[in-house]
Amino acid sequence: MSSLTNKKRRPMDVLLYFLIYLCAIFSVLLLGAIIIYVFMKGKNSLSFAFLTSVTSVLRGTVGIAGNIVNTLLIILVSMVFATPIGVGAAIYLNEYAAKGRLVSLIEFATETLSGIPSIIFGLFGMMFFGQTLGLGYSLLTGSLTLFLMVLPLITRNTQEALKSVPDGYRQGAIGLGAGKWHVIRTILLPSAMPGIITGAILAIGRIVGESAALIFTAGSAKGLPKTISALFSKLFHSGGTMTVQLYLSATSEGDFDTAFAIALVLLIIVFVINQGTKRIAEKFDVTRKK
């Protein structure tokens, strides 16, 4: 008997509920398994010496200090280019440009750029920065390639942040006689800062995890520069990041201990970045109730 008060359970419903829960739990279990597996496999090789020495058959040391320095240099150089230009583009789109052909063209370019896979950026970087500009396989070539790759990420995050600044701020400041640049510098950028920082951190995360765009642009050298000047000239030489080293360790070098130790370091970085962006978003959430 089916009546209003006596709900009939449809077998289909039960099955679908089961599938929905299964899928939801799958991602949690998958992540858990990845973390545990990488931790178990990587923890034995991961040590202070591993992080501060360079792999050398002569001295019998295994380490990724060179790769860490390369990664940091690439982050530094790409972000030095990408942050001002990405933020600048967002400011133009949000504050200066009138809706029109040019704006839709720029937005189309941003969309397209963010849809291009990293291997294509790698090919382009190799051809343009490496060959046409003569930079060869170098950290600079890699950095410039990644600069183009993370540009849309920063632009879009800054745009979102600028959009959330109330229009009253702009009108108020302009009504007091301030120029546009003055308003941007003193009011809009500070208000949008959390969004900009979030974008920058996300971009750093992408750079840390990138490998396909770097293998043909920055190469794979793992040496550690000894002096400050060597550190700067390092920009013009080949250098592999941690991800590139992981790839080589797991494939051609067949050194899985190193591969898993790097994987563990990368997972920790990913986790820190993830938590960092969350904190910032929470701290500066204007809709949050005090």
Binding site: S27, I34, G209, T243, L246, A250, A263, L267, V270
Partner: peptide
Amino acid sequence: VSDKRLSRLVKPAIELLAAIPSVIYGLL
């Protein structure tokens, strides 16, 4: 499906899965 407790696990898990570098997926 409003299962708050499990949601609080699933959401961050998805976020982290998205952030894991592709070489790690390859290695695994």
